[in-house]
Design a binder for these strands. Structure first.
Lengths: 666, 666
DNA sequence: CAGGTTCCCACCTATGTGACAAAT
DNA sequence: GGATTTGTCACATAGGTGGGAACC
């Protein structure tokens, strides 16, 4: 079969369900009907982060996924009950997602991918880029990605291996990075690979850019989400179809631990060319001082651009026949990560069994929590040496160009599984937990707007947590894909903005307001602000009645329906909450937390043990200082010009020096 | 008086009305109620480009402007008849605009500013940046700029002077560059200088980036527009308040003619530091080969960023007290360009007469058409030498920092005049002509959207010229500020898009679709397209009834009202039209014109005499090839999520290989 | 001390400059 | 031959890399 897409439940591939190998290939695709991204949410059984997925649930989810993934003809991806909300409901779709540069990812994954995190923010490499197919060309979609903890372990690199080194540190809220082009029509998204290179990783818990904050020496899993919605305002009420590519899993580090990873980075990242040595296959710690650059014909200029700039730049990037982005034929049996504990030999690849080009289950590291001392990189470099010898050419791209013919096949085979339209009562959700996301705060980053809107403070706060909410029931914060919209852009706090002294009303719809994001993401913006210190602000969204100011109700009466039919809600966490237990903890959130001491000298104690990230007022990024803006949204956005911007402003208006606190309901 | 803003009619300052010095200081501010930017539009007498402005008209316009500009307390800027369309109508505003770095501009202007134009696009230097005050903080505004021909002359640099060297070549359609942050609230715009450094100039008539296409050796005048609108869709029906700073006038060149200008550029443009020589005051043609860089402490890093990145980047840039952006005290009497023919001595500056910091009428070159052999740069370099000696420091910025105290004063004195709410019947408009814009096609560049929407071709054309219009009466193409929205971003023509085979229906609302714009503007975008050749597509907007697909009607029923109350309409030109007569020609537009030979081998004869810009398929800019997208807009955008994006798509959808043709009336 | 983090650096890509030779 | 235009260059800025010393 050309596109033997293997499917499985989202969680199935994950080590948390390692004991239940799916009866079929696992999937990289997961569909959720709500901001909670994982089907796991639909299974109340999952209340604990490390709890294995029940077979029933797994099978069920897998089944759904299989259904969707294998049957490219039918379109099960649309929730029947929410159709009224879907902007262009007429046509159904059947999204297929393929990871770009999958072979590169595989190479890294074999060794145990590491991603450097810095205070100023670091891009991912390889770049997270996907090719999407099967969308309704005329329907609008919002594409997002986030990065969630892969388990609740802390790791250490010991004896050339990654070993579990204890329980995970508490996670900071995870931002949902909305692709800058969102919303766009299906045909747009499908016309070329969708890149997320603007997403940056940081270890600075006080980050004001909206970067994704990770814990060093912890394992993470990027996720990709497809949401059919023509308006970001509708995001919280829309169906999220989530795709997970296990090979994109990585461990966050502040300095590379595995020299092989370092070498892979150097060999493949154009920006690291300076470290590519004369061709000795491996750099000698860079001791050959500044060799007169003899390697100037890397002939991958275009390729590099492709790989690095398809995020919010629609440059080049042939839409389909680009050899560079052709899926690899090095596809292995898309078995689920369930089999993670199996220690699959990387060589055991069933390239014929499945055409799935984006998942290499055998590469999926067995992330089963608590399984300590499990070496991660067992695959030798032997098969990879071919790359290290080429100093004049990027092996990655070279390889790709040789596999152009595999593009078509892989294009629609990248989706491993699909789980859709699974709805559960709110209470169920509250109880469910996604191993990947348990205990994490998610943020919706509206990075798609480069024309940022900034507001001086002192403006009326039209949009705040209270606007959304209010079903306490929906306010449970159990860790599953929380959607915390983050408002990128700069904020000014000097005027007080909407100072969130105590927006303590528990609401399911959460927003994480992260200013500076766009600017720091490489998106140049006019400096409307001048201050730096940003607080985090979380907003809860409505699961039930929408208050007066609720943009949801203003945006569409359907929103409420949506909420009802799918009571799933977004939850929020306080940093303080996380430390108290494992990420699936179900305790109460502590009250208002201020992350920025510079603003109010609030507690900085989230990351206990480590020094206080030292940069309360860090001029993160390359340009310090003047990107903070506070946005004062206006209400009744219905029919207003640019709702994307409106929501941005709305959310931005919520940026305050304090974190919302709330109670969790089991 | 601190802010003795002098006012005058928009056209008044222009050389076309050189014989009628206004009875009062001329203004840099012009208010129009419609896309036609100049009050001149309101004066039917102006049917010919070079025709002098009738005294009556000039006086009238000037009067209005004076009224508005001098009285900072009243708010005449809002058209009474269109209030229903204004999003936030409640508050009135009284926009004041100050040119940033005015002294720098003055320095250049004294010598006869030159701007290099290249095929790949060149920024302006000094950067066009303004400070805006007097806006309604809560109202949304769209800020734009364009560059229009200053006269209909061709120039040559002879004997160290710019002389008229014949009649102007036909102008390519001029794009309206919408500031990337549009729409934003007044408080946002006012919080910091508004820069337009992303606007690029080119001489490539086949430019696919959306750059402003200029003719070399021709004189141009940048213009700044303030539009109170919360939605770009409403732009065509909104009141344009236009500000012109005569000192920003320049002659486009492919290579610098005046060595003094070159030196000024080198001394002030951070990117030209490499040409700043050892300190001998003047470079010796750069003959001192690669002097070991001894000048590394330019200490103007931040300053440079300020000046170069406040366009769509909200970085740094203190909102108000930035010395760099403080208006200069070197303000001269804001006399109108009416006095252009007076050959005012640059030294004759009445700095006390007016506090206007942004206009130096005496610097305004007497652009009266046909006045040949009129030397332009008579001001010696003597007074400028102070700058040439500083190799370690940027004199421009240094100077500015010394004038911080003048900021406040200048902030609200920059607006010279204001002419608003002048409405005329459609027929009148058709007859009017703006000397600055006669015969030019204007384009609205939606550069504010970085999240570009691209479409494969073959999509239904939902938005096209026919959608908009239709009063043939309104279709006159007499040259006045035409609003030709240009859709930046990439387009693909391969699929045929909405191939504009013959969208020949004459409509007043015109769109110039220029793909690649964003990408080339430095805005990184995902490469959705792969092709290059772009045709121009113009759309006419509704002056009367809106057709079925008209986004206008879909957007708001008020739109039509607006049109009615202000019948002013946008006109479009075919390149073919221009050559036939002077820019104010009133002949019929030729039918479909294809600018890109690569697509259909269409005629490339627009620029007669000069070689065919040689780049039909030029990979313009720094990244070739894959930025073209065709957008298929959807109709009935009312209440849709992101209208800004919608309009983008709408307009983009119109991009076709042909130009619309139409008949002019009058 | 050891593990981990931070900072600064050289070196890279990408792009904005004017100079200058060559082309038109 | 003169007037412009074009392409290429060295040299800027802006920012993405890993190295490695310093720090914790």
């Amino acid at each position: 079969m050309r596109d033997p897409v293997v499917t499985g439940a989202a969680m199935a591939y994950h080590p948390f369900q390692p004991h239940r190998p799916a009866p079929f290939p696992m999937s990289a695709y997961i569909a959720a009907s709500q901001p909670s991204f994982f089907p796991a949410l639909t299974f109340p059984e999952f209340s604990s982060m490390s709890k294995p997925l029940p077979e029933q649930a797994a099978s069920e989810a897998a089944d759904v996924g299989l259904h969707a993934a294998l049957g490219h003809q039918h379109h099960p991806s649309h929730p029947r009950s929410f159709n009224s909300l879907q902007p262009e409901e007429g046509m159904e779709d059947d999204p297929k997602v393929t990871l770009e540069a999958q072979n590169l990812w595989d190479e890294f994954h074999k060794m145990g991918t590491e991603m450097v995190i810095t205070k100023s923010g670091r891009r991912m490499f390889p770049p997270f880029k996907v090719r999407v197919a099967g969308l309704d060309e005329k329907a609008k979609y919002i594409l997002l990605m986030d990065i969630v903890a892969a388990d609740d372990c802390r790791y250490k690199f010991h004896n050339s291996r990654w070993m579990v080194a204890g329980k995970a540190d508490p996670e900071m809220p995870k931002r949902m990075y909305i692709h800058p082009d969102s919303p766009s029509k299906g045909e747009q998204w499908m016309s070329k690979p969708v890149a997320f290179h603007k997403l940056k990783l940081t270890n600075n818990i006080s980050d004001k850019h909206g970067f994704t904050i990770l814990n060093s020496m912890h394992k993470y899993q990027p996720r990709f989400h497809v949401v059919r919605a023509n308006d970001i305002m509708k995001l919280p009420y829309s169906t999220f179809r989530t795709y997970v590519f296990p090979e994109t899993e990585f461990i966050a580090v502040t300095a590379y631990q595995n020299e092989k990873i370092t070498q892979l980075k150097i060999d493949n990242n154009p920006f690291a060319k300076g470290f590519r040595d004369t061709g000795n296959g491996r750099r000698e710690k860079r001791k050959q001082l500044t060799l007169p650059s003899l390697r100037m014909n890397e002939n991958q200029s275009k390729v590099e651009r492709d790989g690095a700039e398809s995020d919010d730049s629609w440059c080049e990037q042939p839409s389909s026949s680009d050899p560079i982005h052709s899926p690899l034929e090095v596809v292995s049996s898309p078995l689920l990560s369930n089999s993670a504990s199996q220690d699959i030999d990387p060589d055991i690849e069933d390239e014929n069994a499945t055409g799935a080009s984006c998942c290499r289950p055998e590469r999926t590291s067995p992330l089963r929590p608590k399984s300590k001392e499990r070496p991660w990189n067992r695959s030798g470099l032997g098969k990879r040496n071919e790359h290290q010898d080429s100093t004049e050419e990027n092996p990655f791209y070279k390889k790709h160009s040789k596999e152009m013919d595999s593009s078509k096949r892989d294009l629609d085979s990248g989706i491993l599984s699909e789980v859709k339209d699974v709805f559960l009562p709110l209470t169920a959700q509250a109880q469910t937990s996604s191993s990947l996301t348990a205990g994490h705060l998610h943020t919706l980053a509206f990075s798609s707007l480069h024309n940022q809107q900034f507001f001086k403070l002192g403006q009326p706060l039209l949009f705040h947590p209270g606007q959304f909410s209010a079903n306490p029931e929906a306010f449970s914060t159990v860790g599953m894909g929380h959607l915390l919209p983050s408002l990128p852009g700069t904020n000014r706090m000097e005027n007080g903005g909407l100072s969130s002294q105590n927006i303590s009303c528990p609401t399911p719809f959460m927003f994480h307001l992260s200013p500076h994001m766009l600017a720091s993401q490489g998106i140049s913006m006019s400096p409307f602000g001048g201050l730096l210190s940003y607080p985090y602000q979380y907003m809860a969204a409505p699961a039930a009645a929408a208050p007066a100011f609720s943009p949801c109700s203003a945006t569409s009466p359907l929103a409420r329906n949506r909420c009802v039919s799918s009571p799933r809600s977004w939850v929020r966490f306080s940093p303080y909450q996380i430390p108290t237990s494992n990420s699936s903890s179900q305790n109460l959130l502590t009250a208002t937390t201020r992350l920025h001491g510079s603003l109010n000298g609030g507690p900085e104690l989230f990351k206990s043990g480590s020094r206080e990230s030292s940069s309360m007022s860090e001029n993160c990024g390359y340009r310090a200082g003047a990107n903070q803006k506070t946005v004062s949204p206006k209400t009744g956005v219905k029919g207003s010009s640019n709702e994307l911007q409106n929501i941005q402003k709305l959310v931005r208006g919520l940026e305050t020096p304090s974190l919302l606190s709330s109670k969790r309901h089991i």
